[in-house]
């Protein structure tokens, strides 16, 4: 499902202009990371995707739906949104019930809900904890429950707000696997992150925001090599990219594998 953002400006009621004439198009099945420092407008932008915020000017279309004409609850069929803090959404007695809440709201038939819950449990590796109370889990696993509860809604578009905050290495790996699987299934994934290395390793397209505008937008390799523009918004290039830049490699690299291939070539030259 296509996402079309045309000339989007947004002003908060307190007068702060958080977005200035942002235009973007995101094709079905794209994996997009949105980066930039605090206050750059990242969260304000993605909150427009499911109608939590409505444009002050311009418009946002999800497929053929203009977000101004659909409620958040309706838009939830098309856009799943994982909030940053799982504790601000978990309320049921078991993990499985929590995951079923979203699909039930969307009115899916019982059998389909069953399947979706099973699938989400498996993707997040929560099977063994299905009957546990979410609040008896560690914050790391609570986050997985929150993610599973959105995965189970089976929306064509998924938005993650800072999914790696407070997660350890194992959990970040799990997240990367989930994102890869969503890609394989043809879902659109849009992730806000300040973990630039996570961004480099898992996203093909990167959008850099600053001062409510899009500063850079393009393939990860092109965007993440632009150290000077990134510095404007207080972002360092990813570690591997920096290593490549320091060694003067011919191309911008994002992952250890890419680095080694490029480095081997450079040594041979």
């Amino acid at each position: 499902m296509n996402i079309q953002i045309e000339n989007l400006s947004f002003r908060y009621p307190n007068g702060v202009l958080a977005l200035r004439r942002v235009s973007l198009e995101i094709a079905p099945g794209e994996q997009v990371a949105v980066i930039g420092q605090n206050g750059a407008g990242k969260t304000t932008l993605v909150k427009h995707l499911n109608g939590l915020l409505l444009p002050t000017e311009g418009r946002v279309r999800i497929g053929d739906w203009d977000t101004r004409h659909y409620s958040v609850a309706k838009l939830a069929r098309r856009v799943g949104y994982v909030f940053q803090n799982p504790d601000e959404q978990l309320f049921t007695k078991t993990v499985a019930e929590e995951i079923a809440f979203g699909p039930r709201n969307l009115g899916y038939p019982g059998e389909r809900i069953q399947e979706l819950v099973e699938d989400a449990l498996q993707l997040t590796q929560l099977q063994a904890m299905r009957n546990t109370n979410p609040y008896d889990l560690s914050p790391t696993w609570r986050k997985m429950v929150a993610i599973a509860s959105i995965l189970a809604m089976d929306t064509p578009i998924l938005v993650f707000d800072e999914p790696t905050t407070g997660q350890d290495a194992a959990s970040v790996t799990r997240l990367a696997m989930i994102i890869a699987e969503l890609k394989r299934r043809g879902k659109t994934v849009i992730t806000i992150t300040h973990d630039i290395d996570f961004c480099a390793e898992n996203f093909a397209r990167v959008i850099v925001m600053g001062g409510g505008q899009v500063l850079l937008d393009g393939p990860a390799r092109t965007v993440l090599g632009k150290a000077e523009i990134l510095a404007q918004t207080y972002v360092d290039p990813p570690q591997i990219t920096r290593l490549g830049l320091r060694l003067g490699l011919a191309e911008v690299v994002c992952t250890p594998q890419e680095f080694l291939d490029a480095f081997e070539k450079q040594c041979a030259a």
Partner: peptide
């Protein structure tokens, strides 16, 4: 054990068998 490891360490470890 699933500890977080530096990406530089990971890269060098991958480089070893390739003689890099």
């Amino acid at each position: 054990k699933g500890f977080g490891v530096s990406r530089y360490t990971t890269t060098a470890r991958l480089a070893l068998p390739r003689g890099l």
